[in-house]
């Protein structure tokens, strides 16, 4: 039963107020993309056992989407940040690196 702080309204929401939305920072491929690119956009997922960046919506709340950095093996949350970001913010990356020195970094 996770708690994530919604960066849009500041509520420390519990999991039942949220809906999960899968991996964050996916790049959309539309018409004109190759089969491989489109397949990767639709299906290839990092699915890491460890640090993960993912989408959440504060569904029973302000209704906004936001992103979270979370460990899938311990459920530790490193931070949440606005959905309008195309890659993890530097401060969150730094925080993760401090806590998990052997983390290979985003990408």
């Amino acid at each position: 039963m996770l708690i994530l702080e919604c960066p849009c309204c500041g509520v420390k929401a519990e999991e039942t107020e949220l809906s999960p939305g899968g991996e964050a920072h996916l790049k959309r491929f539309g018409p004109g993309s190759s089969d491989e690119e489109f397949e990767a956009y639709m299906f290839a997922r990092k699915n890491p056992k460890g640090v993960h960046f993912e989408r959440w919506r504060h569904a029973y709340g302000c209704g906004k989407w936001f992103l979270a950095a979370r460990c899938t093996a311990t459920l530790e949350v490193f931070g949440t940040y606005p959905a309008q970001t195309s890659e993890p913010p530097a401060d969150i990356v730094a925080k993760i690196k401090a806590k998990r020195p052997d983390w290979k970094g985003y990408k």
């Binding site: 959309r28 989407w65 309008q84």
Partner: peptide, 13 residues
């Protein structure tokens, strides 16, 4: 409605 908001908030913000 959620689908619309998803695209507006996360892709075409």
């Amino acid at each position: 409605h959620a689908w619309m908001e998803d695209w507006l908030q996360c892709e075409w913000w």
